[in-house]
């Protein structure tokens, strides 16, 4: 497999995943060789079909494989030049990366405000926590309106915003999102991506996004990687990936002129790559 690193030349990447392999339960090989870079302040998408290994890759980076009895068995993950392997998730959060889990996973019996406070264990200073809450409510004004309700009763979109806002309370340098558009209306997806754009611009937070909704994701990111069957099969600038006929056919629906020959060609190439 060729080198498909996409980090901008010159600045070292904030996150660098180098040919990792992930095994669940000591037998099931879920990720066979994923390499990717996220530049400082970069916005990167990890695209691919269901079960391709995208979520597993994110969990390998955040360290959340452990409760699912998964482990990184080969390769390395470096964050700002430091290897993450062997660190527990709370330690990784303290280094500046945070993972918004698939399915939102808000603390249902806590209010939105308490949800935000729960994510401040790394902050010593009380005033700082208050400022962070204010900052989050400015980004997500809808949450401020529902600050007193229990999070379990918020709508799906509000819960997704809360999950993202909660993650931002840790003051990350890298925000990883797993399927933030899942089950939300296109309008809400746009709203959430708009907020993420603002967060990226205002706070300089790099974003690594896992999405099945490739069309929405490619409009949002600078760089994209295509994961298939546990491997990265393509990587590059979002526009390049979007223009690729294989991607057009397999992930973007290809409009009305689906070219079955191209799909076949892509499938063959995929087989050759894996």
């Amino acid at each position: 497999m060729g080198d498909i690193s996409t980090a901008a030349a010159g600045s070292p990447p904030i996150l660098s995943v180098n040919n990792i392999e992930v095994v669940y339960d000591n037998v099931f090989l879920a990720v066979k060789g994923v390499s990717l870079d996220v530049a400082e302040g970069g916005v990167v998408a990890l695209l691919g079909a269901n079960g391709a290994g995208k979520s597993t890759t994110l969990k390998a980076i955040s360290g959340l494989l452990k409760p699912e009895r998964g482990a990184v068995t080969r390769g390395d993950i470096a964050f700002r030049g430091e290897s993450l392997l062997g660190l527990d998730p709370p330690d990784r959060v303290r280094l500046g990366l945070v993972h918004v889990l698939e399915g939102r996973r808000v603390f249902e019996h806590l209010t939105p405000r308490e949800n935000l406070i729960a994510a401040t264990s790394m902050h010593r200073d009380r005033r700082g926590v208050k400022d962070l809450i204010d900052r989050t409510f400015t980004w997500f004004p809808r949450l401020a309106e529902r600050a007193k309700a229990k999070a379990g009763y918020l709508s799906g979109g509000e819960q997704q915003m809360l999950a993202i806002g909660r993650a931002l309370m840790t003051e990350p340098k890298l925000l990883m999102l797993d399927e933030p558009s899942l089950g939300l209306s296109p309008l809400l997806v746009d709203e959430i991506f708009d907020i993420l754009r603002k967060v990226n611009a205002e706070a300089g937070v790099a974003v690594l996004l896992v999405e099945q909704n490739a069309a929405a994701a490619l409009d949002f990111v600078d760089q994209a990687y295509l994961v298939d069957n546990g491997r990265v099969v393509m990587g590059g600038a979002a526009a390049t990936v979007k223009a690729n006929p294989d991607v057009q056919a397999a992930y973007l629906g290809g409009g009305h002129q689906v070219d079955y020959a191209a799909v076949k060609h892509y499938r063959q190439r995929r087989r050759w790559l894996s």
Binding site: L64, V93, H99, R105, S121
Partner: peptide, 11 residues
């Protein structure tokens, strides 16, 4: 409420 989510935000 959710141990994995707590872990993911640094608790």
């Amino acid at each position: 409420d959710d141990q994995t989510a707590s872990w993911s935000v640094g608790i």
